[in-house]
Amino acid sequence: MHIFNFGGSRRISFSSTTSEAERLQVFKEPGYSFIGMHCLFDSCKASVTVVKFGHLSSDLLAYGASDGSLIVCRVAEPPSILHQLKGHSKDVTDFDFSSNNQYISSSSMDKSVRVWDIGKGHCIRVVYGTALQLCIRFHPVNNNFLLVGNAHKEITVINFSTGRIIRKLALESEVTAIDTDHTGQFIFAGDSQGCIHSIKVNSHTGALSRTHRNYRGVKHKAPTTTVLFRTFSLLARGPVLLTCTKDGSLSFFSVALEVGGYLTLRCSLMLAPRAWNIQASFCPLLSLEKGEFIVSGSEDSNVYFYDLTRPKHPCVNKLQGHGSPVIGVAWNHGENLLASSDSDGVVIVWKRAKMEG
């Protein structure tokens, strides 16, 4: 097991030598400049398929891998691994922190959902299903509910305390990515055909009801790899949703919560199709910037930053340091650290430069 702490001494290269960079001219954006690698974790021997920071945390980090392992770390000085959570027998497809960061819920290709006590470092609940469990979230208001998407084209609501499935909602395709709005009134679910479903959820009973289905922004039928909700955007002047599909499509929607979570496509970007389930994330909101910035992994081993409002020259920066396809990306709460994971099992935590003034 190795943890490397670079203390900002290792510089990042921005040279354009890859296939993605050849297609997208890079315009460096000062707000998304980085001073180096903060630390690196390479204890995992399998592809790291998902990486996330804890809820409202700048220090707690976890990542799940294709060998079923789930690793919990701290990135504050000195960086350290807290627990290696073992129980899944196949790929960890997704996980989520509870609102108090006491628990992690995880979904897996082994058809199970597990809940882990982070402090004790062991599994406290296992729910066995009959389908591949593909994505998972704690309900943001009622953490006793787990919201799970599976390969049987269902969203299930699981009672965390009892481990019982209390609600199901059938969709037309496998549910591959989900997120909720901040109030917990809506689930936004992406499926294996690239459609995004807006679903009303009752935070008391777990009852689910469909409100809208959106096909826009999808040129080809391809699995959704990312669905992320944000409460505010400078462009939309309200809540927004970011989606990413395996055909390389990045889409940015405004969300009308008062109209059943109705989605309106505001801008999009078409990249090269991917073999891996490459994920994307919103970038920190910068008050001086007018664009809509997102960060994404790529199969050419780089981390890319895009402004979706610049269709001709969307790439504003990139980070080089991985040696294999970059799959997962995630910001910490303080938005000064960015974590990225790759198919060789390496997780890099990058340190963003402080903005002057």
Rank of each mutant, 00 (worst) to 15 (best):
M1C: 09
M1S: 13
G8H: 07
I12G: 02
S16G: 07
T18M: 05
S19M: 13
E20L: 14
E22C: 11
E22S: 12
M37D: 10
M37Q: 14
L40Y: 03
S47W: 10
H55E: 11
D59Q: 14
G64E: 02
S69H: 01
P78H: 10
H83N: 12
H83M: 11
K86N: 15
K86V: 15
D91C: 13
S98D: 10
S99L: 11
S99I: 12
M109F: 10
S112I: 00
I118P: 01
G129A: 04
T130D: 13
P140A: 05
N144W: 06
A151I: 00
I158Y: 11
I166Y: 07
R167P: 01
T176C: 08
G184F: 04
Q185R: 15
F188H: 03
Q193M: 10
G194K: 00
V201S: 02
A207V: 09
T211R: 14
G217P: 03
G217Q: 06
A222D: 06
T224W: 00
L228S: 08
T231C: 09
S233I: 09
L234V: 06
A236G: 05
R237M: 13
P239I: 07
C244V: 00
K246Y: 00
S249T: 13
S251E: 01
S251H: 02
F252R: 09
F252D: 03
L257T: 11
L257Y: 04
E258S: 13
G260F: 03
Y262K: 15
L263D: 01
R266C: 12
R266G: 03
A280L: 03
A280R: 00
L286C: 11
L288C: 11
L288Q: 14
F293Y: 15
D300M: 02
D300L: 06
N302S: 12
F305I: 15
Y306E: 05
H313M: 11
Q320E: 14
G321P: 07
P325G: 06
H333D: 09
E335D: 05
L337N: 06
L338I: 12
L338Q: 07
A339P: 11
S340D: 04
V347L: 04
I348Y: 03
K351V: 08
